[in-house]
Computed example of a mutant assay.
Amino acid sequence: MAECFVRFFSLLLAVVMLSACASSQFETEVSQNTNFEITPYLTSTDDQIDPSKVPVLTPTPPPLPTPTPFIYIVVTGDNFITVAARFNITYNELLIANPDVGNPSFLSVGTELIIPTGEGDGGPPSLEAPTQVPVIESLPRCYPTASGGLWCFLLVQNDRLVPLENLSALVSLYDSRGMEQTSRIALTPLNVLWPGESMPLVAYFPPQAPPWDKVQAQLLTSLEVPTNEERYLTAVVENSQIQISGKGLQGRVSGIVRLQDEQKSASYVWLAAVAYGADGAVVGVRRWERGGIESGGRIEFDFLVFSLGPTIESIDILVEAGP
């Protein structure tokens, strides 16, 4: 047993000695192989780079978001003046931002208006504010109604050689002490006032209108129709008949409307019957509306106009047609 143990121990010692010799030889070989020289490899690229020859890359800035204009939808009773006042902007600012609107005084319900809100609001920046032009004004006249309201008329005359549009005025009521009680915007029954014609601006004060002693009016807007404007067609009234009855408190007007250019057609026709008293003051007005006229056609009209004050002495018929 002791002899076997001695043999096993001797064998184990021999194995350990052989392993040590192999490890020493491997380390010697590794040590010898780690001493190597790096050979540089030549390329066509220069070692020194000239910074002036390095292209500068300019990053493309991301596009800025386009401002979304504020759109207002017209409701019943709206016009440019009331909308401008609602959003605390001027009439001209609203007009410049909406150059394609046909008649700022009479807007169709559902019309979309661009409301200027600063830079990038969608209004054409190249347009300039239109120039206001003077007109001949008469003193305003007011007539109370049975319900406690008040109708006021401001007669204006176009003494220029071009038609006018977008006429408006501010009518104010004052008490006996000269204190302003209330005011309303006065507008014309038609969009356009042709050269040489007169037309009233009309303001209505609903019940109960405050007590007043004096009325004053201030013209707000009056613009020339551009010479290249095609929003209005020249129409003429033919075979007109005017009958004043009812003790002079009503008048009946009838006749025919025809387009002067028979090659064109109109999408709408408006008439305004303006009633005058003995002193030449407006006592009543009524607008009549009908559909269009085909090219070469005509349209008949027949309607009444009433006086809000003195008896009617004469009646004028004004006409407007548009493509």
Rank of each mutant, 00 (worst) to 15 (best):
L94G: 00
L219C: 05
G77A: 08
F87A: 03
E3K: 11
V56R: 11
I315G: 01
G77V: 05
F205I: 02
E238C: 04
D175T: 06
D302S: 06
F70V: 13
I185T: 07
T60I: 12
E294N: 14
I73H: 09
Y143W: 04
F301P: 02
N228R: 10
L201W: 00
E224Q: 08
V109P: 06
V171P: 00
R290F: 09
I312D: 01
K264C: 07
Q216L: 12
S126I: 12
A169S: 04
I81N: 09
R86G: 04
R252G: 07
D316S: 09
L113A: 05
F106V: 11
Y204R: 01
S176Y: 11
G297Y: 05
L42N: 11
G148N: 00
C4T: 15
R252P: 05
M199S: 05
E112C: 10
T82Y: 07
Y174C: 02
I312L: 03
V236A: 15
T39F: 13
T43A: 03
V269G: 02
E27K: 14
I115D: 00
P59D: 07
A217M: 01
I256Y: 08
S23D: 14
D302H: 05
Y174I: 02
W194C: 08
S176M: 11
P210L: 06
A129Y: 12
I136P: 06
P210V: 02
F87R: 03
T82E: 10
V319Q: 03
T311R: 11
S138A: 13
L223D: 05
Y41I: 15
V109C: 08
P211N: 09
P55C: 03
F306S: 08
T117F: 07
D261H: 06
L94N: 01
G123W: 01
A169T: 02
L187R: 01
E262H: 11
Q157Y: 09
V101E: 04
N228I: 09
W212F: 10
W212C: 04
A97N: 06
N88Q: 10
R160S: 15
A97Q: 02
R177D: 15
A266W: 00
F306G: 05
G122I: 03
A217D: 00
G123L: 01
F8Y: 15
L170D: 09
